[in-house]
């Protein structure tokens, strides 16, 4: 039985398609059975839902003050009207925590998107062209990775001045080399894979192979990294807020800032430190668990 050239091409490509579909299906099956994945996904879902539906969920406006309720160092604690109590300006803590999820989500998603798109574009160039393009991109990545990530973010955010945008850019830029390296590495290994070699030998153009097959098949580690990067972005944003980088508007309910502010009230109102701290831990944990579970599920080595 002999196949024509075109048919042979199709068959090989379909096989790569199937291999990918198989991997995804397989990964899904394993994710559903992993408690780590289920806990992680639940926390992430909870976090995203809270962020999206904040206006519906929050009982009060996050910036509405009631100064008559507070005295220096004394803020009403949890009550039926205010489940998590009031903060130092008589604002509803629960509403602030709920709205805070929005800022964390936006900072996380935007910064990781910046890092991933720019990083992937560079990685794609490096992986597809090789040669001096590859060398240039990878050396630049090496240099950026030579600066510890939070330090680099601090430097960039300090440079751009106090605003949420500069925090997002800072964390995004820090992520660029990670994604660039990752995609390039994955593409190099995919390029040597059987179906890619087979396609090439059957005369499929290089560009088509890269775009339609090598690139999509290299995305798995990127997705894993993006999930993990979201976790890091949230802690890094908190760290930057602690250092006074972030929005110049102090009334913004940003978790890191709220946590840093409570240092002054730690002794008298320790609960006020607990809530934003807990919110950060839960959301970071969610992304981290989900990311790790994805990594395990998508790792071909574990598909025995």
């Amino acid at each position: 039985m002999s196949l024509s050239g075109a048919e042979a091409q199709e068959t090989v490509l379909t096989q790569s398609e199937e291999a990918r579909g198989g991997l995804v299906r397989d990964a899904f099956r394993r994710l559903r059975r992993s408690p780590q994945a289920i806990v992680g996904a639940t926390l992430v879902l909870l976090f995203v839902l809270v962020a999206v539906f904040a206006p519906l969920l929050a009982p009060y406006s996050p910036t509405a003050q009631d100064l008559s309720q507070v005295r220096p160092g004394q803020f009403p604690g949890p009550s039926a009207e205010h489940l998590l109590g009031l903060d130092q300006l008589g604002r509803d803590e629960l509403s602030r925590i709920i709205y805070g999820a929005r800022y964390s989500l936006i900072i996380g998603v935007v910064s990781v998107t910046i890092g991933a798109t720019v990083g992937m574009a560079l990685g794609l160039l490096a992986g597809a062209f090789g040669g001096w393009v590859d060398g240039l991109v990878m050396r630049a990545a090496d240099i950026m990775l030579a600066v510890p990530s939070l330090l680099l973010a601090i430097g960039i955010a300090a440079l751009l001045g106090r605003s949420i945008t500069s925090v997002m850019i800072a964390i995004g830029v820090v992520n660029i080399p990670v994604f660039a390296r990752l995609l390039r590495g994955a593409m190099l290994s995919q390029r040597e894979s059987d179906y890619a070699l087979a396609s090439r030998s059957l005369g499929v153009t290089k560009g088509r192979v890269v775009l339609k097959h090598v690139f999509p098949n290299s995305l798995a580690p990127v997705i894993v990294q993006a999930t993990l990067a979201l976790a890091t972005a949230i802690t890094e944003a908190a760290g930057l807020a602690f250092l006074g980088l972030g929005s110049p508007d102090p009334s913004i309910p940003e978790w890191g800032r709220m946590l840093a502010e409570t240092n002054a009230y730690l002794a008298s109102e320790p609960l006020l430190a607990l809530w934003p701290g807990l919110a950060i831990v839960i959301s970071v944990l969610g992304f981290y668990l989900l990311g790790e579970a994805l990594r395990e599920a998508l790792d071909p080595k574990l598909r025995r």
Partner: peptide, 23 residues
């Protein structure tokens, strides 16, 4: 400063935060 006082590392300080008076 307040923490250093409470830990006994200092015996006094200036400009106490009004939030700390009562405690």
């Amino acid at each position: 400063r307040r923490q250093a006082l409470e830990a006994g590392e200092i015996q006094g300080y200036d400009l106490v935060d009004p939030a700390d008076y009562e405690a």
